[in-house]
Amino acid sequence: QTIRFAHMNSPTHFVNTAAETMAANVAERTNGEVTIELYPSGQLGENAQITEQITLGGDLIGQVGVGTIADYVPDFSIIVYPFMYPDFEAAQRFLASDLIKELEAQAEQAANAKVLCYLHFGVRDLYTRDREVRTPDDSAGLSIRVQPVTIYTEMVEKVMQGAPTPMPWPEVYSALAQGVIDAAEAPPSAILDQSHQEHARFLIQTNHMLDISPLVMSASLFNSLSPEYQAIVQEEADAACQNMSEASMASYEGGIEELASQGMTIISDVDREAFAARAGAIAEAFPEWSEGLYDRAREIIAQ
């Protein structure tokens, strides 16, 4: 049985290297009966399209965005709610909760999407051309580049009080250089990748979003494997997620240091409480969520 593992990152990205290890281990432990082929760089399609191929029954594993599963099970997008978690441990507790188990069962039912595990894909920060930001009032009026996805646009509008500006990622560099936008938001590694630090003076450690990403496998494919092989795939996926998360957290710290050494001013004394206090308003933009979802999630995380 061949499984194709698709993701959007480059071949040298930590997702790909951890997936290579996973593929080698699965092949070894199943005596080559189950093989995993890697397709990095969006070769088989973008996140939403990979998720759709999985729901249509493709023999795939995808490292995709939470939002693409939310197309089928709307409640899923609660996982990447801005200003939700104090740290990754809290997120892991939440992801292990009954609430999430219930959502995963729905995804398997409704969309043929089996979530194997979740990884820490990055921590997103705000960065600006020339404005120091510590409170929501500081970020008011900034035009901030975001993906044209509701949870981001609402966050910029309701929490940061800025103007959400969608723009293709490769265009952001020159847009910052020319002042077409005042700010953007991304994990430090992505900022370095595009050299945005050359035209952005301040990195604000808002940590506004913990980018949690699932490894999703076609449920029909997973269920067609023998219980023994299912266990092997599940174990190796868990190990891969673990590896990816560790690499991701290390890359955050390393990225911040690198940005500082390249002359960016790192602002760490951010009033996250003030931002978080405004974040509740985002939930209003999701009438499709089940009743009280946001409050239940907050309760679980606070425990």
Binding site: E20, A23, A24, A27, E37
Partner: peptide, 10 residues
């Protein structure tokens, strides 16, 4: 190390 692994990207 992986002389002929189908997982290798290239």
């Amino acid at each position: 190390a992986l002389p002929c692994s189908p997982s290798s990207t290239y």
